[in-house]
Design a binder for these strands. Structure first.
Lengths: 142, 142
DNA sequence: TAGTTTATTAGAATGATTCTAATTTAACTT
DNA sequence: AAGTTAAATTAGAATCATTCTAATAAACTA
């Protein structure tokens, strides 16, 4: 989707999300989308941004992650109690979670198929199906 | 699995989990398993236990929930960041989550089938596959 | 540029969970 | 049954991720 070969207009990206292209949001968008396919926590992104010499407060990291999520640029996912990951891949896909290392890896959506879904109550509508394949004894590096 | 018709020997249940059948653990086991099929948070169980006139501290509720989970009597599940549910149904099944009400409902395991799983790294082994079907606009009461 | 709106921020507040250290209880021994 | 020991319970403090607050700053609009 996004890649390092063709340049991404981050200001455009942020504006399309209905947000002002501030230095902070552009900086975070660059971190998230420049090399694509990331699974980050707010803390990770925050310390990464500090390491790059751009002071972005943790509050802004949280604000921005939520705004990007609302705008459909990110998908929030919960695998562990007490910590949210944000996935830059918003297309249909699922996750492989390495319990030992905490690493999260995408599984193409068509690699997993769901057979019959249960009947839903009247008026109910599926907003999303999350599939997390939890794996142990494997470091996720092979 | 558990039901209200045939009596459950809670002391036996707790002992089989390698734990001493204390008043607190027996009380919590009764709350959890007497009528079966529950999805509770620690806080819920705690206030419920207080309401029944048995003073069980929140710390003990957490300890007990984790011990029961380790013993295979409960399954911990995370649908929302920042709050764990404990499911008394430990057989293979998945979940329907009503985003509006926060209600969680079981989906029989054979109601959902997974087609192809991705290749796993060497040495990796699937410990569990969690499927959460998120539903909106439905109160879960029909 | 002036005025208005939206963002950012430090630090306080919150909420779930875990930890600590002291007390109590269960189980074992004699 | 009393004494001993290991395990369990507890209140309250501590922790960690996240959200809130209210003040300052930057972006947009006219």
């Amino acid at each position: 989707m996004h890649n390092a070969v063709e340049a991404i207009d981050f200001a455009e990206l942020v504006r399309k999300a209905g947000l002002r292209p501030t230095r902070q949001r552009l900086s975070l968008a660059r971190q998230l989308f420049l090399n694509g396919d990331r699974h980050v926590t707010a803390e990770q992104l925050h310390s990464e941004s500090l390491g790059q010499g751009f002071g972005v407060s943790l509050a802004t990291v949280y604000n921005t992650l939520h705004q990007f999520t609302t705008a459909g640029l990110l998908r929030e996912l919960v695998v562990d109690a007490g910590r949210s990951y944000f996935d830059t891949n918003v297309s249909a896909h699922h996750h492989l979670y390495f319990e030992d290392s905490g690493e999260l890896r995408d599984v193409p959506g068509d690699n997993v198929t769901i057979g019959d879904l249960p009947a839903l109550p009247d008026g109910a509508e599926i907003s999303r199906v999350d599939i997390i394949i939890r794996v142990k004894n494997g470091d996720g590096t092979s």
